[in-house]
Computed example of a mutant assay.
Amino acid sequence: MDAHHHFWHPARGDYGWMPPDDPVLARPYGPADLAPALEATGISRTILVQAAPTTHETEYLLGLADGTDHVAGVVGWIDFERPEEIETIRRLAAHPKFLGLRPMIQDIVDDAWMLRDDLDWAFRAICDLDLTFDALGFPRHIEHFNTLFARYPSMRAVLDHCLKPTIADESPECFDEWARGIARLASGSTAYCKLSGLVTEAMENWRDEDLAFYSDHVLEVFGAERVMWGSDWPVCRLRCSYEDWHRTARQLVDHLGEAEKAQVFGRSAETFYRLA
């Protein structure tokens, strides 16, 4: 299973983060574009994740999911700053392929945004409706996520992209700070972690061993049963193909037993997202 990928169409107009002239990103990506990579890697189920801060995009993704057999579920977006959106959450939650929510915290200026009292309604709705929360952030958000997860202990949360460690920096200090923070999140909460996004945080001429420091640490502190592989396609194409990242990830977990590998490449995501 691929626990994290995107489809998008820039002409929709709500991908403000996307450089309009980027030759890799600024083009449409849909099911037909991903199909050859899924066939080549033998992946039959995926989780489709929002990439725009609009409910319209979430509805667009649910429409794609309805017509795409391999999409097992959608992680969408709502405006956490509008309590009246509770009705939107309830409506989305009624869709059989709607799994949870992902506010784009990495793009929000206030690092402690998720701890604002006026957002409590949204996090309580996630818990009450048994939805999931994808935590999209950077190492500087680690302590705030620690506080958030302690505040809502029943919330099913997963860290996207290992919280984007600065792999390209190659600084021991940066690694140690990230590693300590990730370990605190792993031991202090029930959160899962997505083994995804690492290639795009590395240098263009990245090596497998550059990523292994990070994947090994995540697997050690979370355990394979709380780690799930995701492609982050098409963003991964900034560094390599879908197939190359999948092959690299397989190599990064090669030291694990077969049962643990099965957790990382399917069962952990199925458990977390409660997929039949």
Score class of each variant (00 low, 15 high):
90 R>K: 14
58 T>N: 12
99 L>M: 14
85 E>I: 04
50 Q>W: 01
61 L>Y: 06
89 I>N: 03
61 L>P: 09
72 A>Q: 05
56 H>T: 14
49 V>F: 03
89 I>Y: 08
110 D>Q: 12
53 P>Q: 08
76 G>Q: 02
90 R>S: 08
84 E>P: 07
70 H>F: 15
71 V>D: 09
88 T>N: 02
54 T>P: 03
61 L>T: 11
97 K>G: 01
77 W>V: 00
60 Y>R: 14
68 T>F: 10
62 L>A: 07
82 R>A: 14
84 E>I: 09
108 I>T: 12
109 V>A: 15
52 A>K: 01
79 D>V: 06
85 E>L: 07
107 D>T: 12
88 T>I: 10
54 T>R: 07
88 T>H: 01
107 D>K: 10
57 E>D: 15
92 L>W: 03
62 L>M: 09
56 H>Y: 12
79 D>M: 07
82 R>F: 09
72 A>V: 05
62 L>Q: 02
88 T>P: 02
63 G>N: 13
49 V>R: 01
111 D>C: 07
78 I>T: 14
105 I>A: 10
103 P>I: 04
76 G>E: 02
73 G>R: 03
61 L>V: 07
90 R>F: 00
78 I>W: 04
97 K>M: 00
93 A>K: 03
79 D>L: 07
93 A>D: 04
107 D>V: 11
84 E>R: 13
67 G>H: 14
66 D>G: 12
49 V>C: 05
84 E>C: 07
86 I>S: 14
79 D>F: 03
63 G>I: 07
110 D>N: 11
97 K>R: 15
98 F>R: 00
69 D>F: 02
100 G>S: 03
88 T>L: 06
72 A>W: 03
111 D>P: 10
67 G>A: 11
70 H>Q: 15
98 F>S: 00
88 T>Y: 01
54 T>D: 04
58 T>M: 11
85 E>P: 04
91 R>Y: 02
53 P>V: 00
105 I>Q: 06
64 L>D: 06
87 E>R: 13
82 R>D: 15
87 E>K: 12
93 A>F: 02
62 L>V: 01
101 L>H: 02
105 I>S: 08
76 G>A: 03
80 F>L: 14
81 E>D: 15
113 W>A: 05
64 L>C: 10
97 K>E: 00
56 H>L: 12
49 V>S: 02
96 P>W: 05
96 P>T: 06
58 T>F: 11
70 H>A: 12
91 R>S: 10
83 P>A: 08
104 M>P: 09
87 E>Q: 13
50 Q>M: 01
76 G>I: 04
50 Q>L: 01
61 L>N: 09
62 L>R: 05
87 E>A: 14
93 A>G: 15
72 A>F: 04
71 V>S: 09
75 V>P: 00
112 A>P: 03
57 E>R: 05
59 E>G: 06
111 D>K: 13
71 V>Y: 09
64 L>R: 11
99 L>N: 02
72 A>E: 08
71 V>K: 08
80 F>S: 01
90 R>E: 13
65 A>N: 05
71 V>T: 11
104 M>H: 13
101 L>W: 00
57 E>A: 05
96 P>K: 06
69 D>T: 13
86 I>T: 13
55 T>V: 15
56 H>M: 11
87 E>M: 10
108 I>C: 10
51 A>V: 04
86 I>P: 06
106 Q>M: 12
58 T>H: 12
104 M>F: 15
93 A>Y: 00
